[in-house]
Computed example of a mutant assay.
Amino acid sequence: MHTFPTSSRYNDITAPSMRRADLDVPALAAFSWLRRGARDLTLHPAASLVYGGLVTATGLLMLAFGAHPYFLAAALTGFVLVGPILGVGLCELSRRDESGLPVGFDESLRALRPNRRPLLQLSAVLALAAVLWFLVSIGLMRAWLGPLAPSIEASMWNSRFAQLGLEQWSYWIGAGAVFGLSCFALTVVAVPAIIDRGVSMAAAMRASLATVAAHPIPCLIWATLLAVLVVVAFASVVGLLLIFPLLGHATWHAYRDLTMRR
């Protein structure tokens, strides 16, 4: 377990004060988080791009089987929901840099061992959420619209985006947005809280919910930017190489601004 700072700069992550909008967080703070995330990426490119490369390789593998819309939806929604866990090492890089500690890929892995249990629990919850969303969304659209797409064999020879109509995509995206925002509210500061404070998964999720309740506008804008950048990353595929580490670093700065007094 970490030993955490006791300076007045730090609030108790589970304190009742976290439920009030008593921190001055501008509505457009998300753009500052991205800017600071980009700075961390340029300061530590080697370690950061290792994570970007690992996620890019995984994304390419998923999309290699993604000609069918079911597979495409699974890849995108799974990444959005499980992405916070994949960014643990990037948050640790930013945390260590801010604290003046040695920074490198090996050092970024040090957050895993002392926080293994809550991180594994959070991983399991997010993975379950990704599977649940996929199954529920497919079930709903089959009930509303009938068979959603042609056979897998036929899909392999056609454009994946041409297989669904505008109405079908609208239902899918709308349902995914509701589900994604729910998961976002539970995890917006969960990973940084775990690695920085050593809190339990439940405490980290409570802190995330309190953070969203206290700062709904900055959090909504942050969630929108995350969704847009993930779509851009998958659209270019190799964009994951840069966009994923950018978001991982920015997540740390979001946590700092949303939960800690200056």
Score class of each variant (00 low, 15 high):
Val125Leu: 06
Val125Glu: 08
Leu126Ala: 00
Leu126His: 02
Leu126Arg: 00
Leu126Thr: 01
Leu126Gln: 03
Ala127Phe: 11
Ala127Tyr: 07
Ala127Ser: 12
Ala127Gln: 11
Leu128Lys: 01
Leu128Gly: 07
Leu128Trp: 05
Leu128Ser: 07
Leu128Ile: 06
Ala129Glu: 00
Ala129Thr: 04
Ala129Lys: 02
Ala130Leu: 09
Ala130Glu: 07
Ala130Arg: 00
Ala130Gly: 04
Ala130Ser: 12
Val131Ser: 06
Val131Gly: 08
Val131Thr: 12
Val131Tyr: 08
Val131Ala: 13
Val131Pro: 04
Leu132Arg: 12
Leu132Phe: 14
Trp133Pro: 00
Trp133Cys: 03
Phe134Asp: 02
Phe134Tyr: 10
Phe134Thr: 01
Phe134Leu: 09
Phe134Arg: 01
Leu135Gly: 06
Leu135Trp: 04
Leu135Asp: 05
Leu135Gln: 06
Leu135Tyr: 02
Val136Cys: 05
Val136Asp: 07
Val136Gly: 02
Val136Gln: 07
Val136Phe: 08
Ser137Ala: 11
Ser137Gly: 05
Ser137Thr: 08
Ile138Met: 14
Ile138Trp: 15
Ile138Tyr: 14
Ile138Ala: 14
Ile138Arg: 15
Gly139Phe: 03
Gly139Met: 01
Gly139Leu: 06
Gly139Gln: 02
Leu140Phe: 03
Leu140Lys: 00
Leu140Asn: 00
Leu140Met: 03
Met141Pro: 01
Met141Lys: 04
Met141His: 04
Arg142Gln: 15
Arg142Asn: 15
Arg142Glu: 15
Arg142Ala: 15
Arg142Val: 15
Arg142His: 15
Arg142Thr: 12
Ala143His: 08
Ala143Pro: 01
Trp144Arg: 09
Trp144Cys: 08
Trp144Asp: 05
Leu145Met: 10
Leu145Pro: 01
Leu145Lys: 03
Leu145Asn: 06
Gly146Gln: 05
Gly146Ser: 02
Gly146Val: 05
Gly146Arg: 00
Gly146Thr: 04
Pro147Glu: 07
Pro147Tyr: 04
Pro147Ser: 12
Pro147Asp: 10
Pro147Cys: 02
Leu148Arg: 02
Leu148Glu: 01
Leu148His: 04
Leu148Val: 11
Leu148Gln: 02
Ala149Gln: 10
Ala149Gly: 10
Ala149Thr: 07
Ala149Pro: 03
Pro150Leu: 08
Pro150Ala: 10
Pro150Ser: 10
Pro150Gln: 09
Pro150Gly: 14
Pro150Asn: 12
Ser151Asn: 08
Ser151Leu: 09
Ile152Trp: 13
Ile152Ser: 13
Ile152Tyr: 14
Ile152Gln: 14
Ile152Val: 15
Glu153Gln: 13
Glu153Trp: 14
Glu153Thr: 13
Glu153Ile: 11
Glu153Phe: 13
Glu153Asn: 09
Glu153Asp: 12
Ala154Gln: 10
Ala154His: 09
Ala154Tyr: 11
Ser155Lys: 06
Ser155His: 08
Ser155Arg: 00
Ser155Ile: 00
Ser155Gly: 09
Met156Phe: 15
Met156Cys: 12
Trp157Gly: 14
Asn158Ile: 15
Asn158Phe: 12
Asn158Glu: 14
Ser159Leu: 10
Ser159Gly: 12
Ser159Met: 08
Ser159Phe: 10
Ser159Cys: 04
Ser159Arg: 03
Arg160Ser: 13
Arg160Val: 14
Arg160Tyr: 13
Phe161Cys: 09
Phe161Ser: 08
Phe161Met: 10
Phe161His: 11
Phe161Trp: 12
Phe161Glu: 03
